[in-house]
């Protein structure tokens, strides 16, 4: 269904536990924001690109990342050069390249299930404050299932709007879509309650 960008593999990067990768990524993001030296930032960018080679990411995924990056960097570079000068533009763009490619590397090499388990484990200390990390997997599953139901509803509503010749009206689409969304929410709530959700 919504497979995401994950690419199976057996590289050291794939095998590193999701939690460590996530921490490393957060650390890297913090460093990237603090650093002001183009040399260091360039070095980090190079290291991240090396990571793509190490994880043997397919050319297809690399291309996809490069495309997103290309558009964004071109736009930001032009804008910052015009407004703030060349040095600032280079700095901003190096930051974007480092942060975006590292984050995408994480997403490509880590299964969604593993991220969920890692976050569940990471949030465990918060249990004493009423956070219930074991519910995360449930929330993810529930939301994905709702996405498929609502996609179907959205398609039906759009057809109905078309049949009435109102395919260009935002209201003719959004209002019935929302009302059916809310009705679905109430029905889902009842079904969840019937299956013991909310009973302690």
């Amino acid at each position: 269904m919504l497979g995401g960008w994950y690419e199976p593999g057996s590289s050291p990067l794939h095998r590193t536990p999701a939690g460590w990768k996530l921490l490393a990524l957060l650390g890297l993001a913090a460093v990237v924001f603090v650093l002001r030296s183009p040399g260091w930032l360039g070095g980090i960018c190079a290291a991240v690109v090396l990571g793509y080679a190490l994880a043997r990411i397919s050319p297809r995924s690399c291309l996809r990342v490069a495309r997103t990056l290309g558009v964004l960097v071109a736009f930001m570079f032009a804008l910052q050069w015009w407004l703030l000068g060349l040095d600032a533009a280079v700095l901003v763009c190096l930051r974007i390249v480092a942060a975006l490619t590292a984050a995408n590397l994480f997403t490509i090499t880590t299964r969604v299930d593993d991220v969920v388990s890692a976050v569940e484990r990471g949030l465990r200390p918060l249990r004493r404050f009423g956070v219930r990390p074991d519910r995360l997997g449930l929330l993810v599953g529930l939301t994905l299932q709702s996405v498929t139901v609502l996609s179907k509803i959205a398609a039906e509503v759009r057809e109905a709007a078309k049949a009435r010749g109102a395919q260009r009206s935002v209201i003719a689409f959004a209002v019935p879509f929302l009302i059916r969304t809310l009705r679905h929410a109430d029905e889902l709530g009842e079904a969840l309650a019937a299956r013991g959700e909310g009973d302690r």
Binding site: M1, G141, L142, L144, Q145, T148, V149, K152, H184, E187, L188, A191, L192, R195
Partner: peptide, 8 residues
């Protein structure tokens, strides 16, 4: 049935 099925 659409609103009773809660998981993917």
């Amino acid at each position: 049935p659409d609103s009773q099925i809660v998981m993917p």
